[in-house]
Design a protein around this nucleic acid. Structure first.
Lengths: 244, 244
DNA sequence: CATAGTCTTTGACCGCGGTCAATGGCGGCA
DNA sequence: TGCCGCCATTGACCGCGGTCAAAGACTATG
């Protein structure tokens, strides 16, 4: 296990002040059941760019993402990379009942995790069928999302991919901090660099940049600077996400 | 629900002569537990090209594939299609706890299904945690496979895609009917047309055909005619699956 | 404030693979 | 047996997006 962890903090009741208490898997547990999780869980602080688990290593942990954004990366033998998943707060990571880590898990931003030893977490699952069912539903959702993105990666043009991506990011940014989103211009910061966006969409950094410039010139979006994005014309952006 | 079904056959104990008895999810049940499934299961014969469930429809069934090959298809609003999964005998299909069908499920060959009403199957899952856990593990595997194919679709060249695909198909054909596979030439029939292969790999029918011709001219494979494929040089094929 | 490193933008070029089109092969069916 | 329809192959063309290269913007650091 080549992963590096930050220092662990184990307060008496780590769930009490959990940022995702009601949205994460654990939300299915009552206060008493949470104690069992408390006993095996640890919080970990992860720096931007740091890798939590490497593909191929033994799968020793799983857990919930509390804050920040993580990416799951697949790579070819000769180094080509594809981001196959993005994780946001309250998302579960890791694979119970698995031998090896399937995909490298890396922090795109500074992040905070709630980590469980995999074996211990499996034992908890066995005694909390409700949580296991919730996990099953989540994995089904992840599977549907992955399959949907197969369509995007294989069949959509660069412009369509990027338009769809920006709408996704806007929706996610809007979910927390909804600023009068009724069709007025919306501005938010992307948590990804151009290169990271390219990795997600199966493109190159140059194509991402060129497509953004084109959208800006069309007045569909604005680029105030830094990682900021302004969606000026949501309708037009949605049209571009579906246009042939 | 626009799906069409063949006539149902309900013998006294449909599991007794099940072709995938020990490999399917049900393999986790003992004989007594199987009776519960027997009560709600039906066999259905599906013709080549027939669709079992349409994306967007209410998810009313799930089950196991007994014989044949099915495909899961995602499509854009303007008709572009991508096959996001192939199902083989003993594979589970459908999504317990889901409202709608996520992806259109269609038969590539004549096929035989073991079908359960979704609601009834959920009730069985609730009383057989072992089976639910087995399902969880399968869905995790499907998720890993889907993510692996995201890498292929987004980052691999046409030649790499096709070489990898042929190796997959050879392994699957070899699994049942292993004909002295120790590096000698292997011949088998693809269950897919060129167009269907193109749908799976995110290419066009013409590119599939051209790449196959090129491999044939290089002596890596042979094309005896029809859907038959001969793998003459497995080493070379594996190299092409990874070459930049 | 100076500097170094990373991220971004933009241009020039080109090759892979998609599109359009025509021909060839094979099987099903009357 | 001959016809018809589907599938596969091959060629000509070209455009999207990748590659290579250089310059500009932003951020962190001493």
């Amino acid at each position: 296990m080549a992963a590096l962890y930050g220092r662990a903090m184990i307060p008496k009741d780590i769930c009490a002040d959990c940022a995702v208490r009601d949205r994460a898997l654990c939300g299915s547990l009552d206060d008493q059941e949470l104690l069992a999780l408390n006993a095996i869980g640890q919080r970990r602080q992860i720096a931007r760019g740091q890798t939590v688990a490497w593909a191929g290593d033994e799968a020793v942990i799983c857990g919930n993402l509390l804050t920040g954004v993580l990416k799951l990366v697949a790579a070819t033998a000769d180094g080509r990379e594809q981001t196959v998943g993005l994780l946001y707060p309250a998302d579960f990571f890791g694979q119970p009942y698995a031998g090896d880590v399937g995909f490298t898990l890396t922090a795109l931003t500074e992040a905070e995790l709630c980590v469980f030893p995999r074996a211990a977490f499996e034992r908890v699952l066995e005694h909390h069928q409700r949580m296991e069912r919730l996990l099953l539903q989540r994995i089904f959702e992840s599977l549907n999302e992955a399959r949907g993105r197969m369509l995007v990666l294989a069949r959509k043009s660069a412009g369509e991919k990027l338009a769809g991506f920006l709408l996704d990011m806007a929706a996610r940014a809007g979910a927390s901090g909804c600023r009068a989103s009724r069709d007025g211009p919306v501005t938010f910061d992307l948590p990804l660099t151009r290169g990271q966006i390219a990795d997600v969409l199966g493109m190159t950094i140059e194509t991402v940049s060129r497509q953004l410039t084109r959208m800006k010139q069309s007045g569909v979006i604005g680029l105030p600077g830094g990682r900021a994005i302004t969606i000026s014309d949501r309708e037009a952006l949605a049209a571009r996400a579906e246009a042939a």
